[in-house]
């Protein structure tokens, strides 16, 4: 039995704080996919995203003693990835279109004031990347959540969200079209739109 696969994030975090390498590897296996995909979407650069995730985990190990005693370990990882993306935006010449995007957003002048809502949205956005991942990586993540969601269920779940996630189904479908080929994509569309 692999104990680590059965532990939840908080328990792994406690072991990580103690310097347990196996716990650290399990956290990496769990999160590498979605964090990488998320960073890729925000940076539009595969190699840069790869480096970001590697550096994030390197720092996680180095600073394991200072890990906050938080109950929301995934939230901590998600904030870390956002900070690293921000850091790149702040120092890069061409910041993956973010500057223009920010200016447009700023003109509308409506933003989410509640910090918890922002945190939930970030978590949803990052975790939605599982739809794009290869089967095995998706399984590792979903197993850790003890939830086995079908594409449809994931889509429905994302539908509940109020902000930004509108496009996610569209994008998930687009990803599926690329990954499954046209025929499977049409089947999925039929299933999703007519049978729900």
């Amino acid at each position: 039995m692999n104990l680590y696969k059965n532990l939840n994030d908080q328990e792994l975090a406690v072991l990580l704080k103690k310097g347990n390498e196996a716990a650290f590897h399990e956290i990496y296996e769990r999160y590498k996919g979605i964090l990488h995909m998320h960073a890729y979407k925000k940076l539009v650069d595969f190699e840069e995203a790869k480096d970001l995730v590697q550096e994030l985990f390197g720092a996680l190990w180095d600073k394991r003693d200072d890990l906050p005693e938080t109950v929301n370990f995934s939230g901590y990882l998600y904030n870390s990835v956002r900070n690293r993306v921000f850091n790149i935006y702040a120092h890069k010449k061409v910041a993956a279109g973010y500057i223009t995007s920010f200016q447009e957003f700023n003109r509308e002048a409506s933003y989410i004031t509640d910090e918890r809502v922002r945190e939930n949205e970030l978590a949803k956005q990052i975790e939605a990347e599982i739809t794009a991942l290869p089967e095995r990586m998706r399984e590792v993540f979903l197993l850790s959540r003890k939830e086995h969601l079908s594409h449809k269920e994931i889509a429905e779940r994302l539908d509940i969200s109020e902000f930004t996630v509108k496009n996610h189904i569209k994008k998930a479908l687009k990803t599926l079209r690329f990954r499954l080929g046209l025929f499977a994509y049409l089947l999925f569309l039929i299933k999703y739109y007519f049978l729900k």
């Binding site: 957003f105 970030l122 956005q125 902000f163």
Partner: peptide, 11 residues
Amino acid sequence: LLESSYLQHEA
């Protein structure tokens, strides 16, 4: 403002 714009930003 920054965190919301981050959520909204799509390449």
